[in-house]
């Protein structure tokens, strides 16, 4: 990395001493940047190692059955991760089911329909949703959304969809306000800006030539989006969705407010539940005994493995579309 010197020191202009100092400074700067970059990598490894070490007592005691045991009893020191895993997956699934169509809609609006002058302001407004901290979503979800759902939406769901065979199970029980559905809706709002901004960016990678040719063939705007834009940007879209999913899986505070924190699996989406991150946030400081703490860290390890896999897949897909 000191090669620049060949150019920087024509004979006679720079004394040998200056040149040597220059090499040393170059070397030092290089090592400094290398060290910083290494530190970032070491941090991630540190996170992994510390989680495995912290989770070890619980994993050694319960083995793999930790993953599919539902029981969570701090008093009897029996811990199983099934309920939080279930809650995490179901809330994220609801968030995706609601968030993806809305995000796609916004992206289509911003790239195809919106008047030029409004694109930036609307785009910025949607991105501001990403700036609002998760605790604010939690506060809003708990004091505004949950009571609203409890008094108007949930009774309606119970009385209509609740009576339909098969899917009726999903909407049974009492309207608690807080629970899986509420958490899913809050998460959907939170992932909106992430999925929207990536969707919009990959939509814009579609060559103008393709787009214009399609219009020239007489396609309507919707047909262009459906038959040209979406197929062309398919891989990037999946990448954006995965990135949003990674966010939803790991989101903590917003969910902690509205999930109800109950280690139980019930079929109804209206019932209180818990997620991995909410369980850790709620119980970690109060956990007594090594096994309890260790079980919570083991939950964290599971969450880390899941999000790592999802984010890595997202990254890989987005690199393939050369949009990083």
């Amino acid at each position: 990395m000191a090669v620049t010197l060949d150019m920087s020191a024509p004979a006679g202009l720079v004394s040998e001493k200056q040149a040597r100092r220059s090499i040393r400074a170059d070397r030092a700067f290089f090592l400094l940047t290398l060290g910083s970059a290494t530190l970032v990598v070491v941090m991630l490894l540190g996170v992994m190692v510390s989680l495995v070490i912290g989770a070890w007592p619980a994993l050694a005691k319960f083995g793999f059955s930790f993953i599919w045991t539902e029981r969570w009893s701090p008093v009897k020191e029996i811990f199983g991760a099934l309920a939080p895993i279930y809650g995490t997956l179901v809330t994220s699934a609801i968030a995706m089911a609601i968030g993806i169509p809305i995000s796609f809609g916004i992206a289509i609006f911003l790239t195809e329909i919106c008047p030029q002058g409004l694109r930036r302001p609307i785009g910025i407004a949607i991105e501001l949703l990403a700036g609002i901290p998760s605790i604010i979503y939690g506060l809003w979800g708990f004091f505004i959304l949950a009571p609203f759902l409890q008094t108007s939406v949930q009774p309606f769901l119970i009385n209509t969809l609740g009576n339909v065979p098969v899917i009726g199970v999903l909407f049974g029980g009492a309207p608690y306000g807080i629970g899986l559905l509420t958490a899913g809706i809050v998460l959907a709002i939170m992932v909106l800006p992430f999925i929207t901004s990536i969707t919009r960016d990959v939509f814009l990678t579609v060559p103008v030539l393709l787009r214009e040719s399609a219009y020239g063939m007489g396609m309507t705007t919707w047909e262009v989006v459906r038959n040209i834009v979406i197929p062309y940007s398919r891989v990037g879209l999946v990448g954006g969705i995965m990135l949003g999913l990674g966010r939803a899986l790991g989101e903590t505070m917003a969910v902690t407010f509205v999930i109800g924190n109950s280690h139980r699996i019930s079929a109804s989406l209206l019932s209180p539940s818990t997620t991995i991150s909410a369980a850790i946030a709620n119980e970690f400081t109060e956990a007594t005994g090594q096994l309890y703490t260790s079980s919570l860290v083991a939950l964290g390890l599971i969450l880390f493995v899941i999000t790592f896999a999802v984010l890595a897949a997202a990254k890989w897909l987005l690199i393939r579309t050369e949009l990083k």
């Binding site: 991630l44 989680l51 966010r247 790991g250 880390f304 999000t307």
Partner: peptide, 22 residues
């Protein structure tokens, strides 16, 4: 290293908390 940084960028913050706690 870029890849790892991006993972760290979107990693759940509660996991970072667990790490610092340890």
């Amino acid at each position: 290293a870029k890849f790892i940084n991006d993972i760290l960028l979107s990693a759940p913050s509660i996991i970072i908390g667990l790490f610092i706690y340890t």
